[in-house]
Simulated assay, not measured.
Amino acid sequence: MDVTTWYLEQTSPDDLRPGRPPLAAADVVRAEIPAPEFSRFLYTAVGGDWQWTNRLPWTWAQWMDWLSRPGTETWVAWVRGTPAGYVELVAQEGGVVEIAGFGLLPYAIGQGLGGHLLTVGAARAWDIAERWPELDETRRVRVHTCSLDGPAALANYQARGFRIYDTRLNVPGDEDEGATPGPWPGAGPRG
Rank of each mutant, 00 (worst) to 15 (best):
L105W: 06
D176A: 13
T72W: 12
L23A: 11
R139K: 15
A24R: 12
A123G: 13
W184P: 02
E134F: 01
I128L: 15
G150M: 05
T59E: 03
T53P: 02
D15R: 03
S12C: 10
E177C: 00
E137M: 11
M64R: 15
R69A: 15
A155I: 10
E98I: 02
L105F: 12
R142W: 06
A24T: 04
W60C: 03
T180I: 09
G81R: 05
R20D: 15
N170D: 15
L16T: 15
Q10W: 03
V29T: 14
G110F: 10
A108K: 02
A123D: 13
S147P: 13
R139Y: 08
G186P: 08
L113R: 00
G94Q: 02
P83R: 02
P18C: 08
Y157I: 07
T4K: 08
N54A: 14
R55H: 14
E130G: 09
T180Y: 01
P70G: 09
V120W: 04
M64Y: 14
G19F: 06
T5L: 07
G47S: 06
P185G: 07
G71K: 08
R40V: 00
G103Q: 04
L135K: 12
A100L: 01
P18H: 12
L118T: 07
L8Q: 02
I99G: 02
N54M: 08
V143C: 11
N156F: 05
W132T: 14
G85V: 07
L117G: 09
V79F: 01
I33N: 01
A100T: 05
A35F: 04
S147E: 10
L148T: 04
A129S: 15
Q158N: 07
S39I: 03
G114K: 00
W63M: 11
G48V: 06
G182C: 12
P22V: 07
A122W: 05
T72L: 12
E130P: 00
V76C: 03
W6D: 06
Q92G: 09
E37W: 13
R168D: 12
R40E: 14
G101V: 06
R40S: 13
F41G: 03
C146A: 05
A45Q: 14
V96F: 01
V76G: 01
A159C: 06
E73T: 08
A155P: 13
L117C: 12
W63L: 08
W184D: 11
R131H: 15
P183Y: 07
Q158F: 02
L113T: 05
E98Y: 13
T145E: 12
G103Y: 03
T145G: 13
E9Y: 05
T167L: 14
I128Q: 07
H144G: 02
W132K: 00
E88W: 09
W6Q: 02
D136V: 12
T74A: 14
A61K: 12
G114W: 00
T138M: 04
R20L: 15
V28N: 05
G112Y: 00
L8T: 03
G110N: 10
L16E: 10
G85Q: 03
D149P: 10
L135P: 11
L56V: 15
P183K: 11
